[in-house]
């Protein structure tokens, strides 16, 4: 056939981009529906329910699930959060200090504790009494868990605070200094309060991360009155040879973490809208 100039003949049926998109979308829906049907049809629902959602096993978790496990999770998390908040702010100030050795110490700390798995820190804490004979983490098991979470959280929180401190305009410090405030006074009165306000959303996310990391207390080898959600679920699951308690613990985490996540993104949205 002779070469013909490629022209679109009027009236010829061609797939418009919009039509192609519609077809592609229909195909995707069909595949999804087929997958769903397959899962519903072929999954062994009885066995799954037996192993993961056995009501009488779930009942065994009550009331300790809330009165002991959730309570302890909150103790570890809040304690670790407070420690990481204070220590993180200190690290951030050191990180931004004019004094070089402060900067070095902060950088080294932050890099090490962000670079190591949190689990490793917890394992090391259990060896502290061996390394330092006679040394006891104050607060016993609570103290150990809070220390572990605080040490890890501080490294992350320090970076959050650093961003916040750097986001406060220089004019704020200048205004404070021009009123006769010392550098320290200006930081405390003017810069830090603004930085803290700015980092509330990422700090909420940090809190959620700590809440999940509190499950690592499992590796401290704690007795039953100190168990948090993950160990509580795991222990019960072993006892009944059934995964339901782990599911129950998981749902309990979600009850706390999902609203906090929403809170964080709402705070973030409001921050943008203000001003």
């Amino acid at each position: 056939m002779a070469d013909q100039p490629k022209t679109v003949e009027p009236g010829r049926v061609r797939l418009s981009p919009r039509k192609r998109q519609r077809i592609s979308r229909t195909v995707q829906y069909v595949v999804l529906a087929a997958a769903l049907v397959a899962v519903v049809r072929y999954a062994d629902w009885q066995s799954l329910a037996q192993n993961f959602a056995k009501l009488d096993v779930a009942e065994q978790a009550l009331p300790d699930l809330f009165t002991v496990a959730l309570r302890n999770t909150i103790v570890y998390t809040v304690g670790g959060f407070i420690l990481s908040f204070v220590f993180g702010l200190l690290l951030a100030l050191m990180r931004l200090s004019q004094i070089k050795p402060y900067r070095w110490i902060a950088i080294i700390y932050i890099e090490i504790f962000r670079g190591l798995p949190a689990l490793l820190i917890f394992l090391m804490i259990t060896f502290l009494p061996l390394a330092l004979p006679g040394f006891q983490v104050p607060g016993g098991t609570y103290g150990q868990g809070i220390l572990g979470l605080g040490l890890v959280g501080a490294a992350y929180q320090a970076e959050v605070f650093r961003a916040g401190l750097q986001a406060v305009p220089r004019g704020q410090t200048e205004a404070a200094r021009s009123l006769g405030m010392s550098a320290t006074r200006a930081q405390i009165t003017v810069v830090i309060p603004q930085a803290i306000r700015m980092v509330i959303p990422p700090t909420t996310n940090q809190f959620v991360a700590l809440l999940k990391d509190s499950s690592l207390v499992l590796f401290l080898g704690v007795s039953s009155e100190y168990v948090e959600l993950a160990k509580f679920g795991n222990d019960l699951a072993s006892q009944y040879a059934n995964a339901t308690p782990i599911m129950v613990a998981g749902v309990t985490y979600l009850i706390v973490t999902i609203p906090l996540g929403y809170l964080a993104s709402r705070l973030e949205g409001r921050k943008g809208g203000k001003r």
């Binding site: 305009p169 004019g171 704020q172 200048e174 205004a175 404070a176 021009s178 003017v190 309060p193 603004q194 306000r197």
Partner: peptide
Amino acid sequence: IGMVFQQFNLFPH
């Protein structure tokens, strides 16, 4: 010495 800035620099909090 009182100082007044172009950008006001009031403490927003």
